[in-house]
């Protein structure tokens, strides 16, 4: 066994982060957010019951389909958006035809929606809150000098920090599931783990709606996949912010640049598909759950394997830069 071992180094990092109480703060934010969403959901349900006098999802889905048809019939909508609507319409029709409720009421559905909405912004933001100063904080406090004059090679110290990022990413996913489940269940009920959900919708090369890959999954399996994809995205964001933390000594600057990366991603992907090579940008590949849901991808030619590959290449690149810089740099 090499001494000092990696586990001890990780323990050190956890000790530092734990004493800054970052995870409890993030969980508190999560609790507040989820409580608000749950309340909003509750009000929506009440309103629907008032309007329709019933909570039949079939009626609701039928209304949404009619709405899509009306919008498609109107002139002057953009080609991209038309395609999106058509796809959405067909998906909803498919749910209705197969008698599957796409929004089975219950806490598990809430978790599903939270992951789907949170994967591009909220969850990455949380990992930035926890991790942004993992290296730059050591520069700011001057502790980097004490840390790097230990009999431990620099790459091992950075490796411990990176593994800590992955550890906290996992804890963040677990906390998200637990908080969402616990709070939303009060209003929505706690069952629905085995409700069927459809996945595998695909646009064919020509953008047509294809049904050959569609299959049902129990909710718990689908959630596991969602959480896994959210883990990947959050870990990638954590890795990029680790690199920025190494390169930029000022924590505030580091957080700022990470925010810019995230927000630029959401802006670009909503701007549309004219700039096709933008699909190689890391921040346009964060919406992995999109592929599970079977929405049309933001840019043609993007798929789950494509996005995972792009994320993988970027992660490897960021790690290489971070490790190279950290092990070679003179520390003043």
């Amino acid at each position: 066994m090499s001494n000092p071992n990696m586990l001890g180094l990780i323990r050190n990092e956890v000790m530092k982060i734990a004493s800054k109480k970052r995870l409890p703060i993030v969980i508190l934010i999560l609790v507040i957010l989820v409580s608000m969403f749950t309340y909003a959901q509750y009000r929506e349900i009440q309103e629907k019951i008032e309007k329709q006098g019933t909570l039949d999802w079939r009626v609701e889905l039928q209304q949404e389909i009619v709405d899509r048809q009306n919008r498609l019939a109107s002139s002057g909508i953009q080609n991209d958006f038309r395609q999106f609507l058509e796809f959405d319409l067909k998906q909803k029709q498919y749910y209705l035809d197969n008698d599957i409720n796409p929004n089975y009421p219950g806490a598990p559905t809430f978790i599903r929606i939270f992951f789907s909405q949170g994967i591009t912004l909220v969850l990455p933001l949380f990992i930035i809150i926890i991790m942004a100063d993992i290296v730059s904080g050591e520069y700011n406090d001057g502790t980097i000098k004490t840390l790097l004059s230990r009999p431990v090679r620099r790459w091992r110290i950075l490796m411990a920090k990176w593994l800590t990022v992955l550890l906290y990413t996992s804890m963040l996913m677990a906390a998200t599931v637990i908080v969402c489940y616990g709070i939303s269940g009060i209003v929505l009920g706690y069952d629905g783990w085995t409700a069927p959900i459809l996945t595998g919708f695909q646009a064919s090369a020509t953008g047509e709606f294809a049904t050959e890959y569609i299959h049902t999954l129990p909710m718990w399996k689908y959630l596991l996949m969602s959480a896994g994809l959210a883990w990947v995205v959050t870990a990638v964001v954590g890795t990029i912010s680790l690199m920025i933390s190494v390169l930029v000594k000022n924590t505030a600057t580091g957080i700022g640049s990470m925010m810019a990366v995230l927000i630029a991603g959401t802006l670009l992907s909503s701007l549309g598909s004219s700039w096709t090579s933008s699909k190689y940008l890391v921040n346009l590949n964060f919406d992995l759950i999109n592929y599970l849901e079977g929405q049309a991808p933001p840019i043609e030619g993007m798929s789950l394997p494509f996005s995972l590959t792009v994320l993988g290449v970027w992660t490897a690149g960021c790690l290489a830069v971070a490790f190279w810089n950290f092990t070679q740099k003179d520390m003043y």
Binding site: L9, K16, G142, T143, T146
Partner: peptide, 30 residues
């Protein structure tokens, strides 16, 4: 480094940890 102990400029320690926690942390690296 195993044969060397140092304070470079000010003693830069983790202010948000206790003295003992600081030492425990450095002990894990030795």
């Amino acid at each position: 480094m195993q044969r060397l102990g140092s304070i470079v400029e000010n003693p830069e320690l983790y202010k948000y940890l206790s003295g003992r926690e600081n030492l425990q942390m450095f002990a894990r690296m030795l």
